[in-house]
Amino acid sequence: MEPGPKIEVNHEGTVTVVELLDEEILEENTINIIADSLFAVVTDNPGIKLLLNFTRVRHLSSSALGTLIRLNKQVEESNGMLKICHLRKSLLEIFKITKLNRLFDIYEDKATALSSFNN
């Protein structure tokens, strides 16, 4: 198991911004550690306005997508909102191939994503 934090949590107004710190979110071990941290944030904050920042992420696997889907479900069940920003072109392509761009609200940058929570 790799040491060190996998996510960084910050608050911008009413929005919880989580930056994913790994370049590669491919392997089960990495995904499980990130999932545990993300689900803990959501469980502790019912109705959360959650923005996932993918600035640093270069690789994603289908297993990581599965985790995002489960997380989104949990957020919606608590009447919260989950949005995504800063997906690089190659990762956006993965969302388009899997049509998950229809399931998730994806924004080019953090500022646009943050302001969308107020609309």
């Binding site: 696997s61 289908s62 297993s63 997508l65 599965g66 985790t67 889907i69 489960r70 479900k73 993965i94 191939i97 899997t98 049509k99 998950l100 229809r102 399931l103």
Partner: peptide, 15 residues
């Protein structure tokens, strides 16, 4: 199936 967390690996490999 869009909200199912499984079954995207083969799709991605084919793409």
């Amino acid at each position: 199936n869009l909200e199912s967390p499984h079954g995207r690996g083969i799709l991605l490999m084919r793409a």
